[in-house]
Computed example of a mutant assay.
Amino acid sequence: MDTWLVIGLGNPGTTYAGNRHNVGAMVVDELVRRSGANLRAHKSRARAAEIRLGTLPGGVPGPKAVVAVPSTYMNESGGPVAGLMQFFKVPAERLIVVHDELDIDFAQLRLKRGGGEGGHNGLRSITRSTGTKDYLRVRVGIGRPPGRMDPAAYVLKDFSSSERPELDFLLPDAADAVEQLVHVGLTAAQNVIHAR
């Protein structure tokens, strides 16, 4: 059975753990929690776990996946991602990157393959290190910063007190989106997730 690689982007350490920029890592934590596994240090400079993604009809365990969070800062995510792809022999078409997206309203989800990086340093690093933009993305909306706040400052702030309760729904929904991608493919998953 072919293995998938699911990367949740974020910055390492407790200082950044609740930041909007770390929502991708939070989604991977949700997938790991569902599976009962634990992320462990991997030589590719990431924390990773081998899991089954969801359950197929008849209670059959879902496809094999490696879920991981780079241990590097966001702008150096590409090295660990390329290392994991090489180690687990995962091609770009089975790479899913979960990341925060300024251009999507908070708590909305969008799925796509390829495209630009929209100024996202984590995506830019992954594209540079893997040599392709043609990987799947689960884009988790965090909305635009208020007023004239610098987007770079906004993404490094924790979710607001009004946003935090929504995370209880957003993170499971984003984890569902990852499972949908591997179970039914991009187009069918988009039809389900984008309709919400």
Results as ranks from 00 to 15, higher is better:
residue 39 L to W: 00
residue 54 G to C: 05
residue 82 A to C: 09
residue 133 K to Q: 12
residue 110 R to T: 02
residue 122 G to R: 01
residue 90 V to S: 04
residue 75 N to K: 10
residue 109 L to E: 08
residue 48 A to H: 08
residue 115 G to N: 09
residue 132 T to W: 07
residue 93 E to Y: 13
residue 70 P to D: 11
residue 127 T to W: 01
residue 87 F to H: 14
residue 101 E to P: 03
residue 46 A to V: 04
residue 124 R to I: 01
residue 99 H to Q: 14
residue 95 L to E: 06
residue 44 S to V: 14
residue 95 L to A: 04
residue 90 V to N: 05
residue 127 T to H: 06
residue 52 R to P: 06
residue 100 D to W: 08
residue 62 G to D: 04
residue 50 E to R: 14
residue 56 L to R: 10
residue 106 F to H: 07
residue 79 G to P: 13
residue 60 V to E: 13
residue 51 I to E: 08
residue 131 G to K: 02
residue 90 V to T: 09
residue 60 V to Q: 14
residue 43 K to I: 04
residue 98 V to G: 03
residue 125 S to P: 00
residue 85 M to S: 01
residue 97 V to L: 07
residue 47 R to H: 08
residue 130 T to W: 05
residue 105 D to C: 10
residue 89 K to P: 13
residue 46 A to C: 08
residue 91 P to A: 07
residue 43 K to V: 05
residue 53 L to Y: 08
residue 109 L to M: 11
residue 88 F to K: 00
residue 127 T to M: 13
residue 73 Y to W: 12
residue 113 R to K: 14
residue 96 I to N: 01
residue 123 L to W: 10
residue 74 M to H: 04
residue 64 K to W: 14
residue 57 P to M: 02
residue 91 P to Y: 06
residue 39 L to K: 00
residue 63 P to K: 00
residue 54 G to E: 00
residue 125 S to T: 03
residue 57 P to A: 10
residue 103 D to K: 02
residue 126 I to R: 06
residue 81 V to C: 09
residue 78 G to C: 08
residue 96 I to E: 01
residue 109 L to S: 09
residue 126 I to Y: 12
residue 102 L to S: 05
residue 35 S to V: 06
residue 115 G to V: 04
residue 74 M to I: 08
residue 78 G to N: 09
residue 104 I to S: 13
residue 68 A to L: 07
residue 132 T to M: 06
residue 38 N to C: 08
residue 108 Q to S: 14
residue 69 V to G: 06
residue 130 T to D: 04
residue 36 G to C: 10
residue 110 R to W: 01
residue 101 E to H: 13
residue 101 E to K: 12
residue 67 V to S: 01
residue 134 D to N: 11
residue 40 R to W: 01
residue 40 R to N: 11
residue 55 T to S: 12
residue 108 Q to K: 15
residue 96 I to Y: 00
residue 125 S to E: 04
residue 78 G to T: 10
residue 131 G to C: 07
residue 41 A to M: 15
residue 85 M to A: 03
residue 68 A to Q: 10
residue 126 I to K: 04
